[in-house]
Amino acid sequence: MTITLNVNGQNHQVDAEPDTPLLYVLRDDLELNAAKYGCGLGQCGACTIMIDGKAALSCVTPLLVAEGREITTVEGLGTIENPGPIQQAFIEKQSAQCGYCIAGMMMSAAALLKHNPKPSDDDIRSALRTNLCRCGTHMRIMAAIKRASELMEQAAVPAATNRSAG
């Protein structure tokens, strides 16, 4: 079947079977390689993306359910030249060791920060409990998410000031 996928704000025409995992389409057809293939069973979190602003596991998401939804991958959080606040925070805090889990961690963090801009440690642990890291950089990941929260707040303040001034 041919379906239209909206990924990071852009529409793509994709020709694939309806039960193809979304992860395969993102990586193989759209060449968006941020989301990783880890376990293929929805248990490790390396393939986490956002669907309509909520964290979802792309390795167990059938392509057909993605039609008409807004899909976000790490490529949608910023670029190498102009990283977004979550990417900036993960760089600042040097949260990646091998890095394989980090794209998934960032997407779970992005979904968390969307509805909870000032998460507590418990909130972060709870939101990221399905993202596994084998290197043990959890404390740096926690620090990065707190830092991202600060960066997003700082970014939001001038805008708010402008609005009240205008």
Partner: peptide
């Protein structure tokens, strides 16, 4: 529901 089952469930539930 067949395609959803195939991609989302079968990998674990028929493993």
């Amino acid at each position: 529901g067949a395609a959803i089952y195939g991609a989302a469930c079968a990998t674990c539930h028929e493993s």
